[in-house]
């Protein structure tokens, strides 16, 4: 256990506190867009922590997938919602006691799992997993799991495409264009009778 040594590292403290603060902000601000932003910052902080522990691959993946991917997805989600600046509208239930219980249980569980992890605190642990090793193990012993996961993701992707297509048939269809064009004609015919067009 080298926890004491880690505890004395000010950079670690700073990063940890910043990450936590961003996480707190993410769940407490009223503005949905800000919430997504703080979540992204919190994830960045996590990535920085990974980098601090020399797990640079994990850090890069964290940034690439979580900040670059998930947050952007969330942004798209936010853009599709109507009320951006009033998150209170979404909080229909407020049960702080139960929420706190769940959070504490999760926290205890996580701490327990972390403290029981073998090799914790060994500064060289991150170095052990080199890039080639990682690649070899992904495509060697864990190839099956890897492929199954890929298949799952593919299925999800296909499903998403199918779902999206159902609502709006793909490319701007001729039908839609014609509808728009006819609307244009109607407007012009209407304009013949009016000068001012209100909205």
């Amino acid at each position: 256990m080298n926890l004491e040594m880690l505890m004395q590292d000010p950079a670690l403290w700073g990063l940890g506190i910043a990450t936590l603060a961003f996480a707190m902000l993410a769940v407490s601000v009223k503005n949905l867009v800000h919430a997504v932003l703080w979540l992204g910052m919190s994830l960045l902080g996590t990535a920085a922590l990974f980098a601090k522990f020399d797990a640079s691959f994990l850090a890069a993946i964290q940034v690439l997938l979580y900040v670059g991917g998930v947050v952007v997805l969330l942004i798209f989600g936010v853009m599709l919602t109507r009320e951006h600046d009033n998150l209170a509208a979404f909080r229909t239930t407020r049960r702080p006691v139960r929420a706190a219980l769940v959070a504490i249980a999760l926290f205890v569980g996580l701490v327990h799992a972390i403290l029981n992890t073998p090799g914790l605190g060994d500064p060289s642990a991150g170095k052990l997993v080199s890039m080639p090793d990682l690649g070899m193990s992904l495509l060697g012993p864990y190839a099956f799991a890897f492929e199954v996961l890929s298949l799952l993701l593919l299925a999800a992707m296909v499903g998403a495409v199918v779902l999206a297509r159902k609502r709006d048939p793909g490319q701007p269809s001729a039908k839609k264009l014609i509808r728009h064009r006819n609307l244009g004609r109607q407007v012009v015919e209407g304009l013949a009778a009016t000068d001012e067009v209100g909205q």
Partner: peptide, 13 residues
């Protein structure tokens, strides 16, 4: 080790 990944990640960011 993962320099290229880092570059791509930040570029995506």
């Amino acid at each position: 080790d993962v320099g290229l990944l880092w570059v791509l990640a930040l570029g995506g960011l």
